[in-house]
Design a binder for these strands. Sequence first.
DNA 1: CCTTGACCTCAAGTTGACTTGAAGTAGTAC
DNA 2: GTACTACTTCAAGTCAACTTGAGGTCAAGG
Lengths: 146, 146
Amino acid sequence: MLDISEVAQRAGLPASTLRYYEEKGLIMSTGRRGIKRLFAPVVLDQLALIALGRAAGFSLDEIGAMFDARGEPQIDRQTLVDRADSLDVTIRRLSAMRDGLRHAAKCQAPSHLECPQFRRLMTVALARKKGEKARGSAGAGRFGKP
Amino acid sequence: MLDISEVAQRAGLPASTLRYYEEKGLIMSTGRRGIKRLFAPVVLDQLALIALGRAAGFSLDEIGAMFDARGEPQIDRQTLVDRADSLDVTIRRLSAMRDGLRHAAKCQAPSHLECPQFRRLMTVALARKKGEKARGSAGAGRFGKP
DNA sequence: CCTTGACCTCAAGTTGACTTGAAGTAGTAC
DNA sequence: GTACTACTTCAAGTCAACTTGAGGTCAAGG
């Protein structure tokens, strides 16, 4: 059993964030010693998972919908697959942006927005509207209209 | 020349966001007809670039530091390369998360956090601490401690 | 000429994800 | 038993990225 400062230190998060995550139902403390929270070591895995989800652009609510407070995936397997699909889209975009940045760093063209290679990369990155719409509204939440 | 509603419609963004982006110096209107903004069509490319950057987890300020209001990359080529490198890290994590989600959707293990395959994917996703630290602090801003 | 509607500005409000601060509590060390 | 310290709660504050609302402007149509 770990107390909050140990979890904080190992996860690289402030204790306040851990309390906030618990309040939101993303993690659970397994008990108290006196008034102090105790966490099972598995919470570190859960926090890693949450960090991953945040890096993927999912909101805390979305992450909460994918995994319960014990870190187990929720039963809606289709949602998990949809999330994975939307990650694919994100990954394709990010790859294009990475390539675009690398290209921009060495390209001599006076205007990058007119450089054919740069534009091709951007087009790749944005060639998703159909795929995204065709599948309904299961996006990662960071794209699309309000 | 496009007026704001046309840009809004084509970019899939509300006009308020376009005004906000202009105020932040991310885009420029090329003039006014009376009191109304006019935009050159190239603004659509810039907006695509901004959307890409946002999807990559960059803040508007970071995007503003990478590209000027005309959409041209700023001269600090090393920064562009650093951003690209940090995108590589992000992409690796997201790929692992995507695989993890796909696996979770079909795996029968009672606890995923104990499923060896799931853990292996997560480990891949998180095996960056060294790489990230070794390169200094050129991250995308979404990772690391405050 | 007058109205209409799409734009404008500027200030204030919203949301998500936390952080901070004040005031309280409880194991441990002396 | 008192002090210390690491925790606790709860309310309020912060920050980014927008959004909303009130009141103003202006070109075009009738």
